[in-house]
Measured scan of single mutants.
Amino acid sequence: GLMCLEHEDEKVNMYCVTDDQLICALCKLVGRHRDHQVAALSE
Rank of each mutant, 00 (worst) to 15 (best):
39 A>R: 13
9 D>Y: 07
10 E>H: 12
38 V>S: 10
8 E>F: 07
22 L>T: 14
25 A>W: 06
37 Q>A: 10
6 E>L: 07
43 E>K: 12
19 D>G: 01
38 V>H: 12
16 C>W: 00
10 E>N: 12
37 Q>L: 03
14 M>L: 09
19 D>T: 00
35 D>I: 02
21 Q>A: 10
12 V>H: 08
6 E>M: 04
32 R>I: 06
11 K>S: 08
6 E>I: 13
38 V>I: 05
3 M>S: 10
8 E>T: 15
6 E>F: 11
28 K>F: 04
41 L>H: 14
5 L>N: 07
1 G>T: 05
31 G>V: 03
23 I>V: 13
2 L>K: 15
4 C>V: 00
8 E>N: 07
18 T>I: 15
39 A>T: 14
36 H>V: 01
40 A>D: 11
30 V>T: 14
30 V>P: 10
7 H>Q: 02
28 K>M: 07
3 M>G: 07
41 L>S: 13
32 R>L: 09
39 A>E: 10
33 H>Q: 01
21 Q>M: 11
6 E>W: 03
1 G>P: 07
3 M>N: 10
43 E>S: 11
24 C>Q: 00
19 D>E: 10
42 S>C: 10
26 L>K: 14
7 H>E: 03
15 Y>N: 06
12 V>W: 05
40 A>C: 09
17 V>R: 14
11 K>T: 05
36 H>P: 01
1 G>V: 05
43 E>F: 04
17 V>I: 14
11 K>F: 07
42 S>P: 11
28 K>D: 09
36 H>K: 11
9 D>P: 08
10 E>K: 12
21 Q>F: 08
40 A>I: 00
36 H>W: 00
10 E>Q: 06
39 A>M: 08
37 Q>V: 06
22 L>G: 15
25 A>L: 04
5 L>D: 11
27 C>Y: 02
29 L>H: 14
35 D>T: 09
19 D>F: 05
43 E>Q: 04
37 Q>Y: 06
30 V>E: 13
14 M>S: 14
20 D>Q: 12
41 L>I: 08
17 V>S: 14
18 T>F: 01
20 D>I: 02
14 M>K: 13
22 L>P: 15
2 L>E: 15
40 A>G: 11
31 G>D: 13
4 C>S: 04
39 A>P: 02
34 R>M: 10
33 H>M: 01
26 L>V: 11
37 Q>M: 04
31 G>M: 02
11 K>C: 13
26 L>T: 14
35 D>C: 07
39 A>Y: 03
22 L>H: 15
16 C>H: 05
9 D>K: 03
38 V>F: 13
24 C>L: 00
27 C>V: 00
19 D>A: 00
37 Q>S: 11
43 E>C: 15
43 E>L: 05
7 H>F: 00
25 A>Y: 04
9 D>E: 03
7 H>R: 01
41 L>C: 14
20 D>A: 07
17 V>Y: 08
38 V>N: 05
27 C>S: 00
10 E>V: 03
24 C>V: 00
10 E>I: 00
36 H>Y: 03
18 T>W: 02
23 I>F: 03
41 L>D: 13
7 H>V: 00
2 L>D: 15
25 A>H: 14
8 E>A: 14
4 C>T: 08
5 L>Q: 06
33 H>Y: 01
26 L>Y: 09
22 L>F: 15
31 G>Y: 06
2 L>Q: 12
11 K>I: 15
10 E>T: 06
8 E>L: 13
26 L>R: 14
18 T>V: 08
11 K>A: 08
